[in-house]
Amino acid sequence: MSTIKGVEKMSQPNPVNSLASVAASRPQHVDSKHVAGTGLEARNIHAWFGDKHVIDDVTLDFYPGTVTALIGPSGCGKSTFIRILNRMHEFIPTAAMAGEVLLEGTDIYKSGTDVTKIRLGIGMVFQKPNPFPSMTIKENVLSGLKLAQLKVANQSELLESCLIRAGLWNEVKDRLDEYGGALSGGQQQRLCIARSLAVSPQVLLMDEPCSALDPGSTLRIEETIRELSASMTIVIVTHNMQQAARVSDRTGFFLSDGGPGRLIECSTTSEIFSNPKDKRTEDYVTGRFG
């Protein structure tokens, strides 16, 4: 019976069902209960650039050990939102914000907080691979330690484990002293992931990490994300709904109706793709708009 059902689903052109089946086919290793005071919690987040209100009242919890995907059309504030989560928002001169971001129950915007410690605990992978050009592959991976002046007993062990976890070890183990710029785009992005892992963050934010990569590298990075999710909280912004369905446990849908971006709906990924509560979410995930 189930095989026949699967065949029926395959033959249907409706993208909602195919994405829903992608989402459902993945093991859901998380229950939807969230314990307050753990993981990363965003409370009533607003953001402005100058007078322009770009995010309106977003409250969203990121559970430990899960992957949360943020989807939505361009310009709806997804990237701004995750930059708020590790205090990168404040580097834009006109930026302002309101609300609280709680890491393990403590507001990261509380005055007197050591920002460098926050960013050490909440790592970030950027859209464009950006290995440090003046450093070798090895130095790139270990750069976080030097930047944050951390001491590690066994550097070569850490180097190897980070590169293995980022899925890059086999490709670079014989060329650790080459410069990072010599790698391909996909390898560079995995190098950047390895670099973020070296400082063992609790949370990893990824801002469209695969948008500049080919399908093979994308697949490799998605595997990496799945493997990492057991040990940390991952937030990934993506324009690729297939990707959201493949890698995430929970999905949040952002939308702007010309004004500030809002969180329309957040639920388990299979729920968002098979049974969205909001009509706009359904329209978006079925490709009817956006």
């Binding site: 960013r119 050490l120 970030m124 950027f126 950006n130 440090f132 976080g144 930047l147 670099r195 973020s196």
Partner: peptide
């Protein structure tokens, strides 16, 4: 990008400038 990457790894501004 490189400035942001350095800061996102927990570097202070001075260490990011000096190292990257």
């Amino acid at each position: 990008d490189l400035r942001e990457a350095g800061l996102a790894l927990g570097g202070t501004q001075w260490r990011t400038v000096a190292m990257i």
